[in-house]
Amino acid sequence: MITLDALTKSYGPATVVDAVSLEIADAGVTSIIGPNGAGKSTLLSLASRILGADAGGVTADGVDVLNAPSRAVATILSILRQEHHTTARITVRELVEFGRFPHSHGRLTPECRAAVAEALAYCDLTDLAERPIHQLSGGQRQRAYVAMVLAQDTHYVLLDEPLNNLDMVHATALMRLLRRLADERGKSIVLVLHDVNYASAYSDRIIAMRDGAVIQDGPPSLVIAEDALEAVYGMRFRVHELDGDRVAAYYR
């Protein structure tokens, strides 16, 4: 279980994340939704020690995420953010092998190679394994970074807007893959999403944020509702039941 305890972050007078406390379950898919500037990505960065918090604490399976040795944290919790800039010349396989660094410290064991091969296969990247990542399309590169996180093989996987730059084919494929990770391997996936309908279709739990605070928290049946969404986004939604999913319409 991940426990966030009154996490707070301010930039000058603006409080971006305001004393957020949450508990994330041991398994399942948890989506964080909310308008731009609600503090979703900041919350994820704070919870994963990428960004220093002004106040508050985080524990994952009892480990103090913010103060424990970084390497110990990296074996139980992984984070993938959206910035994929590197000057280094790296192939897809080498990138995925980096995911084993917390376990191998740079020297790959046979176990590591197996994990890398499996992560590549899981993300349908085996055929692209020897390609340099700068030659890949945006969707392929995104999958390569996801494969790196899979190879890291942590119980908790945090993803910040993983569907950015993906068309619906690749977005749906990635969401199915995350769902399978939660169902087949009992992992706990936390992701920031902009598309409320992907959140609705794939999540066990949806957390809605606005102005740095959590204002809705529950299963899709509760959060994907007209009044609840209007409270989050300040705009009218129509919610329909379609083939067992709750689908929000907001185009008109």
Binding site: I50, S70, A74, S78, E83, H85, I90, F98
Partner: peptide, 17 residues
């Protein structure tokens, strides 16, 4: 080698940056 992925990825992979 890991640092060449950038600060955030290095921290995510367990480096005390």
């Amino acid at each position: 080698d890991v640092l060449s992925l950038g600060r955030e990825k290095a921290i995510a992979l367990g480096i005390d940056h």
